[in-house]
């Protein structure tokens, strides 16, 4: 049987918002032909146990991601700017901030 593999539909990434005002989190992926069925498939696969109040689905191809080569230029500079953190600043003892 030399035919090429049959189609399993395009890949979508699923983001789920848990209850209580928490941020959306990446839950995994599903296969679907369009947004409506991606949403339904995501609901069936990732929200069976009351973990979601909202779902986002995005075609995997639409996601732009940083690469490992970016790690240095993108993220290291953020690690040595102490003036962005509250502990850098001294205030008199006993004063409520």
């Amino acid at each position: 049987m030399a035919a090429r593999p049959d189609n399993q539909w395009p890949l979508w990434e699923v983001f789920v918002q848990p209850p209580g005002g928490a941020p959306f989190e990446h839950a995994g992926s599903v296969h679907a032909v369009d947004a409506e069925s991606a949403l339904q498939n995501a609901r069936d696969a990732y929200a069976r146990r009351g973990e979601a109040v909202s779902i986002w689905v995005v075609p995997s191809a639409a996601i732009t991601a940083s690469t490992p080569e970016d790690v240095g230029p993108f993220f290291d500079p953020g690690n040595d700017k102490p003036y962005r953190h509250p502990q850098f600043y001294s205030v008199p003892r006993g004063v409520r901030m």
């Binding site: 593999p5 049959d6 189609n7 399993q8 995994g28 992926s29 599903v30 296969h31 696969a45 069976r48």
Partner: peptide
């Protein structure tokens, strides 16, 4: 079925299509 789904999707992150895996 859901577990199969999670793991196939995890495998696809390595650059292989689910259709190929199922084949």
């Amino acid at each position: 079925a859901g577990h199969g789904l999670y793991i196939y999707c995890g495998t696809e992150t390595l650059g292989v299509d689910r259709a190929e895996l199922i084949d």
